[in-house]
Design a protein around this nucleic acid. Structure first.
Lengths: 205, 205
DNA sequence: CTCCTTCTGTACCGATCGGTGCTGAAGATG
DNA sequence: CATCTTCAGCACCGATCGGTACAGAAGGAG
C-alpha cells in the first residue's frame, strides 16, 4: 500500500469532467432545475446520457455539484466580501459583487441560487429546498461577520447584525431578480449604492 | 338585436369559473409555470382537463388569466400604493404591501410575479418573458408616480425617479425571494423599514 | 497477444407531459 | 315530449421526461 497516487484502471473517460460540469452549471443557471432537461444538459456538456450518469450520478447530484461549482466560481464574491476589513466594506463588496456576478457578459444573467429553483412541483422540491438552504447559509455567514464587526466597534453597539445581514441578502436577491430580467449592470450598480446609503456609521472602536 | 343581456343557451357549466381560476392561481404561485402540471391544476380546480380547456383555452392562457387575477387581488397593494399622497407614503405603502402580500397566511409564500417563472426551458420561455414584462410594468408605474412627486416638490428636484422606482422594486423582489424561503413577516417588515431609511426628504413644495 | 475494467453509444424503459376526439349527459327551447 | 346546444368524462394522442440494459470500443496489466 505504498502507492499514494491514484492509478486509474480501465478505459479513461473521453471528456473533461470539469468543463462538462461548467457547461451543466450554466444550463441550470439559465433554465433552472426543472427547466433543464437531460437532453439540454448532455447536449451542452457534449456527452451522452450514459456518460453523465456514470460521472455524476443523476440529475439531482449533477445539480448539487453544479451549485458547488457556482459557489466557488461566480459566487465566490460572497466569501471574498467576508474578508474585507470593515463592516461597511463587507457590505459594499457584497452588493457590488452581486451586481457584477449577476450581470457578467457571457454568463447567464441573474443568480443560480435564486432562479435555479424558487418554485417547483413534483420532483423539483428537493432542488428548491437546497437553494433555500444555500441562501440562508450565506445570510448566516454575513450575520456572523457583522456580529464580529459589532465586537470590534466597527458597527454601533445597538446595531442588529441579523437585520443587517438579512437586509444585504434581500437587496442582493432583488438585484438577482432584476438582472434576470435584463437590467443593465450600471443601473444595478446605482441601486446597490443607494441601498448602502443607510449603512450604520462606524463607532470608531 | 334588442337583447342586451347575454342569454346562455345550452347546458350551463357545472363549476364556478372564478373559484377555479383562484385555485389555479395558487398552484402557479406555489409551483411556477413549468412546475404546475395540468394534473396539478385541474385537481386543484376540481374540474377535468376538458372543462379547463373549454373554459380557459390552454395552459398558457390559464397562466395569463391567473396573473391578471393575481394583479387585481394579492398584488393590488401596488396600485393602492400609487394613490398615496406623498412619495414617502407611496414608497412605504409599496414595501409594506409587498411584505404583507408575500407572507399572507393561507396563501403561498412569495410573489407570483417572481417565482412564477424566473428561469425556464423549452415551452416556459413565454411565461418567463410575461413575468419580466409584468415586473417592469410595475416599475414604470412607480417611476411615473415618482416623477409627479418631483414636480410636486414632494421629492428633491435632483431626485432620480427612475433610480428610486428601480430601488423599490428591487427591494420588493428581494423580499419576495426571502418570503419564498420562509422568512417571517416581522423580519421582512424590519428589512422593509430599513430600506426606507434612506428615502429622500420632501423639499416642501 | 489475452484478460479485465471502464467508458461510450444505441436503443429502450415506464411515467408523465400538454392537448384532444368522442360519447353521452344535462339543461334550455319549442 | 323532441330538439338543440353546450358541458363533462373517459380514453387516448405523440412527445418528452428521467433513467437504464446492453453491447461494443478503448485503454492498462499480465
Amino acid at each position: 500500500m505504498e502507492m499514494g497516487q491514484r492509478a486509474p484502471v480501465g478505459r479513461p473517460r473521453g471528456f473533461d469532467a470539469d468543463m462538462a460540469l461548467e457547461r451543466a452549471m450554466r444550463v441550470f443557471w439559465e433554465q433552472g432545475y426543472e427547466g433543464a432537461s437531460l437532453t439540454d444538459l448532455t447536449h451542452a456538456m457534449g456527452i451522452t446520457r450514459t456518460s453523465m450518469y456514470a460521472a455524476f450520478g443523476n440529475k439531482e447530484e449533477l445539480f448539487h455539484k453544479a451549485l458547488e461549482r457556482y459557489t466557488e466560481g461566480p459566487a465566490s464574491y460572497g466569501a471574498r466580501a467576508l474578508r474585507e476589513p470593515t463592516a461597511r466594506q463587507v457590505a459594499t463588496a457584497y452588493l457590488h459583487g452581486s451586481v457584477l456576478a449577476t450581470t457578467r457578459p457571457g454568463a447567464p444573467a441573474g443568480c443560480f441560487g435564486v432562479q435555479g429553483s424558487l418554485a417547483a412541483g413534483g420532483t423539483g422540491g428537493h432542488a428548491r429546498d437546497t437553494l433555500t438552504t444555500w441562501r440562508n447559509a450565506h445570510t448566516a455567514l454575513l450575520r456572523d461577520r457583522l456580529r464580529r464587526a459589532v465586537d470590534e466597534g466597527d458597527l454601533p453597539p445597538d446595531a442588529d447584525p441579523d437585520l443587517l445581514a438579512r437586509y444585504l441578502t434581500t437587496v442582493a436577491n432583488g438585484i438577482a431578480v432584476q438582472a434576470a430580467g435584463g437590467l443593465a449592470r450600471e443601473e444595478l450598480r446605482k441601486v446597490a449604492d443607494m441601498a448602502l446609503l443607510n449603512w450604520p456609521p462606524a463607532t470608531g472602536a
